[in-house]
């Protein structure tokens, strides 16, 4: 149990509607002061879920699901603060990416292409890659969160 007796519930939402659900809950609180919610969080790493910090009971959260359009369900049981703490300190987008790592681009004009990492800029959170299947090596600089690691570099 936390310092203030708050529990954290995970609310399942429609994908990509997390922020809307958060805003809708905030609006709902104005009309329904009986809900005692301390904070609501929608981390990007956790798609399709919204985390609610509240001293209220589970049944109250089910009530929210009925009142908010894009809320689907409440995950049974409560989560401890320690379990969600790491979402508050986001790790660098380039963490786990080294030179030689094979990545797949997941956004931009080269979406879906595989590439080898040539350089990592931790400060700007950018990486420079070369496309795997291209005839001539063309370096492309992309944002660290626009790639997905496929294979780590061999030692």
């Amino acid at each position: 149990m936390s310092e203030f007796g708050n529990k954290i519930y995970a609310l399942k939402t429609t994908a990509n509607k997390e922020r809307k659900v958060v805003d809708d809950i905030v609006k709902l609180l104005k009309d329904h002061p009986e809900f005692d919610i301390k904070a609501i969080m929608a981390p990007d790493e956790l798609r399709g879920y919204v985390l609610i910090e509240t001293p209220d009971e589970y049944a109250r959260m089910e009530q929210i699901v009925r009142l908010i359009p894009n809320a689907r369900a409440v995950v049974k049981g409560e989560t401890s603060f320690a379990e969600v703490e790491h979402f508050l300190e986001p790790k660098a987008a380039v963490a786990g990416i080294d030179e030689g790592t094979i990545v797949e681009l997941i956004a931009g004009p080269f979406k879906g292409e595989k590439a080898v990492v040539k350089r990592v800029d931790a400060g700007k959170e950018e990486i420079t890659v070369e496309l795997y299947e291209s005839m001539v090596p063309i370096p492309i600089t992309v944002r660290g969160d626009n790639v997905r690691v496929i294979e780590k570099a061999q030692e």
């Binding site: 997390e18 904070a39 001293p55 986001p90």
Partner: peptide, 10 residues
């Protein structure tokens, strides 16, 4: 990452 704080004291 989106966070809304409603009651920061508690």
């Amino acid at each position: 990452g989106y966070l809304v704080v409603i009651d920061p004291r508690h």
